[in-house]
Design a protein around this nucleic acid. Sequence first.
DNA 1: CAGATAATTAGACGAATGTCGAAATAACTT
DNA 2: AAGTTATTTCGACATTCGTCTAATTATCTG
Lengths: 95, 95
Amino acid sequence: MNEVFKAIADSNRRKILKLLNDGELNAGEIGQSFELTPPTLSHHLSILKAADLIRQRREGTQLIYSLNTTVMQDLAAAVFDLIPAQTTDLTTENP
Amino acid sequence: MNEVFKAIADSNRRKILKLLNDGELNAGEIGQSFELTPPTLSHHLSILKAADLIRQRREGTQLIYSLNTTVMQDLAAAVFDLIPAQTTDLTTENP
DNA sequence: CAGATAATTAGACGAATGTCGAAATAACTT
DNA sequence: AAGTTATTTCGACATTCGTCTAATTATCTG
């Protein structure tokens, strides 16, 4: 889990996650939203991948990235764990 | 918000937040849960404070720390923002 | 005021991070 | 096989980070 928190500590990486919210994208498409060189983008993607926040698959010459929603949910749970119980009142029905 | 994500990237700092979940504590009390020198602890506290995740008040010779639940909730919201809508199904009634 | 206790600030240091340019890989196309 | 396109890996570099020891500040008490 520590790796996940480190991964989302960078705003570029959080932006990548948000982009993937709307569906999978290849590396080049992701890069169009940033002013970073391809190596830097690739580095960020590899950190997100190492944290298992995203998945990668190849399609011909391009690598296509998508969110790993399972780990995203684990992250949400871990964040809630940081917050006092009464405070976290998103579900209006807690016994 | 970036400062908040940086702040929770460190596991010692997340542990501090969890400790404060159960109520306010002074610096010394927090320190008892760690094997860190007082200066290091103080440093982590100052980062949490700069991110406005915790509040500090003095009582005599000791400094007492408590959670700032407002920012904790902002954090939770920001994390949800990273996650696809359907995935985040904690509240079973979303219009 | 002098001493004790609680905690911080200052300064140093190695490790980790974000970025880049250059070189390498992978897969397709001709 | 050679060229093109997509993306990564390598190596370098400045900056930030987490930690420590030493020194300082703040508050109380005899």
